[in-house]
């Protein structure tokens, strides 16, 4: 097997299409493992992973923890609310204290963009970025691309629409970089206040009319409206947002042909997507969650191989 060649996973930027393909092929086998009666392999039995979360997270953390446990790694969890961070400890000190307990890999979620990069330069362990502020969320992008690959057979040449809050979404940036690297076409749609003009430099199309955008695409990723990151009003009301940019059954029927419906979660039902569309047979939202564990297992496995005994 070709060497993976990366010690950390800090962002999609820096990964080549061949690296992503290697992650996907490894994830295919892990998906098989997850469907066996005994869903565990011993590959990482001599590896200890710390999940360090400075921001609330349920599904990413659960997904990483399950991936680590399915690979037989020892897992420690650390969250900012119960830590010494509130007592003034720096990020490097916090992580070095954890690493002094012989931890090999750190999965980091942090509110500041670039936190994972900073840490990778200052500590010895492998760092996996599980979201740094509004910057990147590489494993989410990889699992989205992997889900498109499984649903549509390939990513290359497919038309993917990303709808909603691009400005505050780390998922959007990582998704755009990932999908473009894999040869997909990407279109963004949402309120003008939530699509910052510089995105055009990433080589994506922008469409303000959701119906036209839906007509164009093979898959639609409906992003969550991130109320918690909004320091001002970006649109008049949730109701108006839903009318303009919410995915409804009527819009789906107007399109008239199958659409792969995605959402990175957690869903604001009735805002970016209606309940009946979220639970629609064309929705792969729960498959995304299942694929997430397999993709994270693949990332952990390939990075651990770089971190030799």
């Amino acid at each position: 097997m070709a060497e993976f060649g990366h010690k950390h996973l800090l962002g999609i930027k820096g990964l080549k299409a061949a690296d992503m393909e290697q992650i996907f092929e490894t994830a295919d086998e892990f998906l098989g493992v997850l469907n066996r009666p005994i869903k565990k392999v011993p590959s990482l039995r001599d590896v200890t992973v710390a999940n360090v979360f400075f921001e609330p997270s349920t599904r990413t953390r659960l997904s990483f923890e399950l991936a680590e446990k399915r690979l037989s790694a020892d897992v420690v969890n650390f969250s900012a609310s119960s830590s010494s961070v509130s007592k003034g400890e720096t990020l490097t000190d916090t992580i070095n204290n954890i690493l002094a307990m012989k931890v090999d890999m750190v999965v980091l979620r942090h509110p500041h963009p670039g936190a994972a990069h900073f840490l990778s330069r200052n500590v010895h362990a492998s760092i996996i970025n599980a979201g740094d502020g509004t910057h990147e969320h590489p494993t989410q992008a990889l699992l989205d691309a992997y889900s498109i690959r499984r649903s549509l057979g390939a990513v290359e040449g497919k038309k993917v629409l990303i709808v909603g809050d691009i400005r505050h979404s780390r998922v959007a940036l990582s998704n755009i970089l990932c999908l473009k690297a894999l040869g997909a076409e990407v279109m963004l749609c949402g309120p003008a206040t939530l699509i910052p003009p510089p995105v055009s430099q990433l080589g994506v199309l922008v469409e303000w009319d959701l119906d036209k955008a839906l007509e164009w695409c093979d898959a639609a990723n409906m992003l969550r409206v991130q109320h918690e990151r909004m320091d001002m009003k970006y649109f008049p009301s949730a109701r108006e947002y839903s009318r303009q940019f919410g995915l409804t059954r009527e819009r789906l029927e107007r399109r008239g042909r199958p659409l792969t419906i995605m959402h990175p979660g957690p869903i604001n039902r009735g805002v970016e997507i209606t309940t009946e569309v979220a639970d629609h047979e064309q929705s792969i939202i729960l498959e995304q969650v299942e694929n997430g564990v397999a993709v994270r297992m693949a990332v952990l496995y390939l990075l651990a191989a770089q971190n030799k005994n």
Binding site: M1, G32, A304, N309
Partner: peptide, 22 residues
């Protein structure tokens, strides 16, 4: 049956072990 994930030489080789289909 692929045995890649169950091998005892993982993390002792230069390149990662490539899984085959089970």
């Amino acid at each position: 049956l692929d045995t890649t994930f169950f091998r005892d030489d993982f993390r002792r080789r230069e390149a990662p072990l490539n899984p085959n289909q089970t």
